[in-house]
Design a protein around this nucleic acid. Structure first.
Lengths: 200, 200
DNA sequence: CAAAAAACCTAGGGGCCCTAGGCAGAAAAC
DNA sequence: GTTTTCTGCCTAGGGCCCCTAGGTTTTTTG
C-alpha cells in the first residue's frame, strides 16, 4: 500500500490551503484526511487535535505576513510606508481569508514559542510608526488604532458587512488617509472633551 | 407530562444569553435543549436549524443595539455624540459578547425582512456624522472607517488580541479622539500621495 | 538482515445536526 | 362537556465530526 507521506508541515500547509477555500471553520480533520486519501485517525500522529491544527495555520500565516509586511515597508517611510503596509494587510486578508482568520485565534503559548515569528508582525507596525514621532503610551495607542481599523475593515469586508454600493477599495484608501491624518495630528494626552488638532 | 412552554422568542432569548456566556460557536441545539430540559428534536418546531438560531440572535441584538445607540446619541452632537456612540458600542460588545458576535453573521434576507430593526443601526451612524458636514461618497467612507475601527477594536479586545499592558480603555479613548480629528480634517478627494489636512 | 521506528490502519465511543413519525396534553368547535 | 383538532414534545435513527486504543505494514537504521 502506497503511503501518503504526511508530515506535520505538509498537513498544516494543506489545511491552510483548504481554509482559504472553504473557510477556517470548515477545516476539519475528516475533510483534511479525505484530501490526503487517508483516514482521519492517521492525522493524529502529526497533529494533536483540531485546535492545534488551526493554531498552526495561524503560525504559518504569521510568518507569511511578516515577510510580506516587511517587504512592503522596506525602503519607505511616513505615509508611503503606511499605505504600503495597509495595502499589504488588506491584500493578504482577501487573498488568504482562511489563513487570515486563523491569525485571530488565541494561540497556545507553548506552540507559539516554537515558531516565534508570530510576534514579529506587531514589531513591524511599531517600527512603521516611528516616522510619526510618537512616544509611549501614544505609540501603543496608535498601533492599536491601526490594527483595529485594518482588522475591522477587512473582516467586515470579508463577511459581507458593507452593503453600500460605494467601491470598497476607494473607501479603504480614504480610511488609510484618514488614519495618516490622525497620526500626524495625534491628540495630546487627557483631552477627552476639548479635542482640537495640534499643529503637527 | 409538564411542558416546557417553548416559543421561538423564548428559545432565541435563551440562546442569546447562552451565547454571551459560552460563546456563539458553542450555542448548539443540544446545549440549548438541555438548558430547557427537553430533547433537541423538540426545538425544531420553533427554529429551522442552528444557522437560523444564530441569525435570530443577531436580529435580537440589532434591536437592542439600535435602542442603546439611539439613547446614547440623543441630544448630543459632534464629538460628544461620537464619544457616546463609541462608548455605547464598546460597552455592548463587551457586555454581550455572544450577541455581538452574532451581529457579524450573514443574515438570510427573508429572515431579516421579518424584523427590520437591523438596518436601523447603520442609519444611526450616518445621522451621527451629519455634524461633520460630509457629503457622499465621503460620508459612506467615514461610516465605514468608524465601523471598521469600532468593530476591529472590540473584536481584537474580546479575542485577547492586545497583549501590551497599556490600559485598553485609555487606548479606546485615544482612538475615538483620533477618529474625531480625522473626521474634522477629512481628506479631500483624490489625494493618495499628497495628503495634507483641509481647514475643516 | 534483524530490530526499531514510523506511517497508516480498524474498531469504537461520544457529541452534534436534523428528519420522520407517534402520542398525549391543550385549545377549539360543537 | 364532549369531541375534534392542533400543537408540543417525544422516540428512533442516520450522518458527520472528534478523538483514543491498539494492531499491522512499511521504512529506516545499525
Amino acid at each position: 500500500m502506497v503511503r501518503a507521506g504526511l508530515t506535520t508541515e505538509r498537513v498544516v500547509r494543506a489545511a491552510a490551503d483548504l481554509a482559504d477555500i472553504v473557510g477556517l471553520d470548515s477545516v476539519t480533520m475528516s475533510a483534511l484526511a479525505r484530501s490526503f486519501g487517508v483516514k482521519d485517525a492517521s492525522l493524529y500522529s502529526h497533529i494533536k487535535n483540531v485546535s492545534e491544527l488551526r493554531e498552526r495555520i495561524a503560525l504559518l500565516a504569521a510568518e507569511e505576513i511578516a515577510d510580506r509586511f516587511g517587504a512592503a515597508v522596506a525602503g519607505r517611510s511616513g505615509k508611503d510606508a503606511l499605505v504600503a503596509f495597509a495595502d499589504a494587510y488588506r491584500t493578504y486578508a482577501l487573498e488568504r481569508p482562511g489563513r487570515y482568520a486563523a491569525t485571530q485565534l488565541q494561540i497556545d503559548p507553548a506552540l507559539a514559542a516554537e515558531s516565534a515569528g508570530a510576534r514579529h508582525k506587531i514589531d513591524l507596525t511599531y517600527s512603521m510608526l516611528r516616522g510619526y514621532g510618537l512616544a509611549e503610551p501614544d505609540l501603543t495607542d496608535a498601533v492599536r488604532l491601526l490594527r483595529s481599523t485594518f482588522h475591522g475593515f477587512v473582516s467586515l469586508e470579508a463577511g459581507g458587512g458593507f452593503g453600500h454600493p460605494r467601491d470598497l477599495g476607494a473607501s479603504w484608501e480614504r480610511a488609510v488617509e484618514a488614519l495618516h491624518i490622525a497620526l500626524e495630528n495625534w491628540p495630546a494626552s487627557g483631552s477627552r472633551t476639548s479635542g482640537r488638532r495640534r499643529t503637527s
